[in-house]
Design a protein around this nucleic acid. Structure first.
Lengths: 340, 340
DNA sequence: GCGTTTTTTTCAAACGTTTGCAAGCCTGAT
DNA sequence: ATCAGGCTTGCAAACGTTTGAAAAAAACGC
């Protein structure tokens, strides 16, 4: 018995027939005698034969694998997206190969190189924070490989993308606070170089304008690293300055948590004195009853794969470069709900 | 220009030389004239040549890919393990292919089939909750494919495994509560059919015994689905029964959170009236200042890959079937720390 | 100019699979 | 007998790469 897994050759040799016959017998091709077919199938089962996907890929020039480049898998949101990607891909008989860029440009380029070397049938990419040079991505499309971006929109390249509507989510979140009676709403803003941060800020401002509320630049605070501690410190500072505040819309749930902690330690009641809502609906948010905005990561993953399949199927350029914008959905919880 | 990526053949044709020459030129083989080498390398760069990993795999009978079968990627712990797996694998030039069993036996078998078909060089498996029949795994080892289990130990198969020391972690957690002065410690137990639940319960009991404290079966409560709501309800019930309780060691952080909420809503102060510690050190635990036990998932992932490489390298059976037990480490936080 | 060595290049096979085409065999009609 | 026609099977090439062995080309000594 040979060491590795059984191949068509092994079966052919043992039955003294040709590989062609075995191959055809295994896939119900017409023109194979029932006797032969049975003996082949029996032996294949006995030896637990599995077609060698590598050989198939080489022959068919198709790996049935899609590559995913993502900043981090440990982030709850991204792992949710991956889940959606896997489910949708698996249901179509595709495998998924994941690489983490760790928010590094260099690693991202490496990942793409590796996946291109593995001859994946398409690439799903959420670019790293560092990435501004797009040469490595241009190469991908110039070689005719389907490419779909998700979550993070890439400016300066017209490729198919799936993103969540940050503007609308932010607008709704802010409007929700207004509906709860908030008059002085702080925005804990994300890093200015990210598109999502800007979109969310715009949504916040538009909501205020639409409700004829003043925009107070002093109530917009940038949280650069987006950590809980940073937000808590900055927000505490703001409270101590004596500003009248009764609502917070944070760029992410971590920052919202920071605001929550600062509020409580300042003796303010949530949501009575101050209503708080975050963004992203992290797992912990439901646990601590923090209102947030759901980004539907799972659905985003599935949609990205669906668009990918469209690109793989359509040789023509017709379906290219569309941008799918998914709705963000506010999830009101205890931290912001004053009205029963 | 042909559609797909450039191959050695393309380069050979364009330069009117043979594939062999191109291949050797690209990898600094001796016996290639400098002129030829230069022209080949230049053209390869120009066309952005990348060796076809599929073809290489077929030829070398080695895919440089390891397969991972895991119940869920969205669990924080598992995604941490994956992170470790990826880092260690990548550093050795390996790719990782991940399949989720979704805690289903059938899907698990499917995953393994797929990965075997993809001819991964080795398999890393954390079995599903449903799995009791081990035939699909036996097949893997009988075909000589390296197999390493992680996190969930498999009884009845002697394969290499990496697990965390649940017993010791539970012992330390319980001892920690005792050290904080707790006299009546509840254990919120996990489902009895899981080995980890039993180990943790044993650790809890041993710690009590070693400190000459009575084992009160009434203080051991089974939380079957391990949700926060379930734990809160059961614990609330226990409190209302008037039992004297001043400490809780929960099988996982979700249950611990349930106990925390029930305690607070009953007007008990944490940690003064009741000290609480969970298990797994989920991401939210640090955020809500819940004490827990860290399982070092990242390290577990790396270690699993290291053992895998050992198995791939060692043809002999010498290094087989070892069990690596990683230390669990208690992370004391506000929910249990009475002593400053 | 010819034999000999050295340098450079090519050939061919292999990895596992599929598939168009050709070939073998058998049956029955002429 | 011969041949058409239908079943069944085999051959060979292809996918992209590597590599031992052989061949070709160049360089050298005389």
């Amino acid at each position: 018995m040979r060491s590795g897994q059984v191949t068509i050759k092994d079966i052919a040799k043992e039955l003294n027939i040709s590989c062609s016959t075995v191959s055809r017998a295994l896939k119900d091709f017409p023109g194979i005698s029932p006797t032969t077919k049975k003996s082949v199938v029996d032996l294949a089962n006995k030896y637990n034969y599995r077609p060698n996907a590598i050989a198939l890929s080489l022959r068919n020039q198709k790996t049935n694998t899609i590559g995913v480049v993502i900043p981090e898998t440990v982030h709850f949101f991204f792992s949710t997206v991956i889940s959606g990607i896997e489910d949708e891909a698996m249901s179509e008989g595709y495998n998924v190969m994941i690489c983490q860029s760790r928010e590094s440009y260099e690693r991202e380029a490496d990942c793409i190189d590796t996946l291109m070397g593995a001859r994946v049938d398409g690439l799903l990419v959420s670019i790293s924070r560092e990435t501004s040079d797009l040469a490595h991505l241009q190469k991908v499309v110039s070689e005719g490989k389907p490419l779909v971006f998700f979550d993070r929109l890439v400016e300066g390249m017209n490729a198919t993308s799936v993103v969540v509507d940050d503007y609308q989510g932010a607008y709704d979140a802010t409007k929700h606070l207004i509906d709860q009676g908030c008059k002085h709403i702080v925005h804990l803003e994300g890093p200015d170089n990210l598109i999502i941060s800007r979109k969310r800020k715009e949504g916040y401002i538009s909501a205020l304008e639409d409700h004829e509320m003043p925009i107070d630049e002093g109530l917009i605070i940038e949280c650069r690293d987006g950590s809980e501690a940073e937000a808590a410190k900055l927000f505490q500072h703001l409270l101590e300055s004596g500003a009248a505040i009764d609502g917070v819309f944070a760029n992410n749930d971590m920052a919202a948590l920071g605001a929550l902690q600062a509020s409580k330690s300042s003796g303010l009641k949530v949501p009575e004195d101050i209503a708080i809502i975050g963004f992203s609906n992290w797992q912990f948010s439901s646990l601590i009853d923090l209102s947030s905005v759901e980004q539907h990561g799972y659905e985003m993953g599935r949609e990205a794969v669906r668009l990918m399949f469209q690109e793989i199927a359509n040789e023509d350029e017709s379906a290219k470069s569309q941008i799918r914008i998914l709705d963000a959905e506010i999830v009101p919880r205890g931290s912001s709900s004053r009205i029963a």
